[in-house]
């Protein structure tokens, strides 16, 4: 328990591992832990759950007051290591990962994020053992159904969200494909929130697919050659209007690379976060701290943009000639200086 808390508090905030901060964190946490234990003994579970939810809601409301990212993306790395370290079968690890994902998606929706995407299955993952691929597929199908039913249920917080499964479908079996289409059809009316599941996806495949689509359109004379520009190109990618930019990309389990995911979306100006925790351990608190930091810096950046714009407006007004024309005066028109007296007399 204590180790867990230490990990999730210090991971995003105190990135650099250092002795002194560690000591302070451990000291603080041990006190906190004691208090927490007493709290657990006194207060019944229903109240505790209510209290947790209450805190979460308040924090979400506070974060909503600031700028909110539009597109958040997850690389869910570490399910298998989680299973191994907890002595669970592989399947359990993946299940825990799926659970974490749905919880976080729900929180993102509540916070007002427009679009969440997640790297569920890479094309390279077909290299894994057949058994594992099969379990992943069944688990994925189950999760999809769960999501679809929840998105149709108006009492559920996920109600009204749109689900899109993107990637190279030619690699999937026929009945999986049919199922995917069914689920997409069920949720296609969702407006304010879109959840993209990348299954089986790689970014290179995405780019290749877009090049293919553009070429096809040109061959069929639907577009002109000069119409193929960077923005038009991005519009044709799998992620529709969210293809241009991904605001926050979170990769868990500490690897500092993109692994063929969201290359086009995140190589310009997105915040890429590499978090050392494994994906099933990744919690609400950690994600919110990342959002909080993003919101802090974005507030500053947006303000600076506005003021820079003001400055450029000023420079434009000063460059208009008749607005501030400088008037020149002749030397004679100046008032007389005082009498000049030399020291030498």
């Amino acid at each position: 328990m204590l180790a867990k808390i230490t990990r999730f508090i210090e991971a995003p905030l105190v990135r650099s591992y250092n002795y002194i901060t560690n000591c302070f964190v451990v000291l603080f946490l041990s006190v906190f832990h004691r208090l927490h234990l007493i709290f657990m003994k006194i207060v019944p579970q229903s109240v505790r759950v209510w209290w947790q939810k209450f805190l979460q809601d308040i924090f979400i409301k506070i974060l909503r007051a600031g700028p909110i990212p539009e597109h958040v993306s997850f690389i869910m790395d570490g399910n298998r290591r989680y299973a191994k370290s907890n002595n669970l079968p592989l399947k359990k690890g993946h299940e825990a990962g799926g659970f974490t994902l749905l919880t976080l998606v729900y929180i993102c929706k509540k916070m007002g994020v427009k679009c969440v995407s997640a790297y569920a299955f890479s094309i390279e993952n077909f290299n894994r053992s057949e058994e594992e691929v099969a379990t992943l597929m069944t688990l994925f199908n189950a999760k999809l159904e769960e999501f679809a039913t929840r998105a149709k249920d108006f009492r559920d917080p996920l109600y009204g969200s749109k689900l899109r499964i993107i990637g190279d479908r030619s690699l999937l079996s026929a009945d999986t494909k049919a199922k995917l289409e069914e689920v997409e059809r069920l949720t296609k009316d969702g407006k304010d929130f879109t959840f993209y599941v990348c299954f089986p996806y790689t970014s290179r495949n995405d780019i290749q697919h877009t090049i293919y689509l553009n070429s096809k359109d040109y061959v069929e004379r639907k577009i002109e050659l000069k119409d193929i520009t960077v923005s038009k190109f991005s519009d044709k990618m799998y992620l529709d209007q969210f293809s241009k930019k991904c605001d926050i990309l979170i990769r868990t389990s500490g690897h500092r690379r993109l692994s063929d995911y969201m290359l086009w979306q995140s190589h310009e100006n997105s915040t890429i976060e590499f978090v050392p925790t494994l994906w099933p351990d990744f919690t609400f608190t950690q994600m919110c701290l990342i959002f909080f930091r993003w919101s802090f810096y974005t507030t500053i950046q947006r303000y600076n943009d506005i003021t820079l714009f003001d400055q450029s407006m000023k420079s434009i007004t000063s460059s208009i000639p008749f607005l501030n024309k400088r008037r020149y005066h002749s030397l004679e028109s100046l008032p007389e200086p005082p009498v000049a007296v030399s020291v030498l007399g």
Partner: peptide
């Protein structure tokens, strides 16, 4: 973007 597929940062 094409070139940072497996690049370590």
């Amino acid at each position: 973007p094409w070139h940072i597929r497996l690049t370590e940062f």
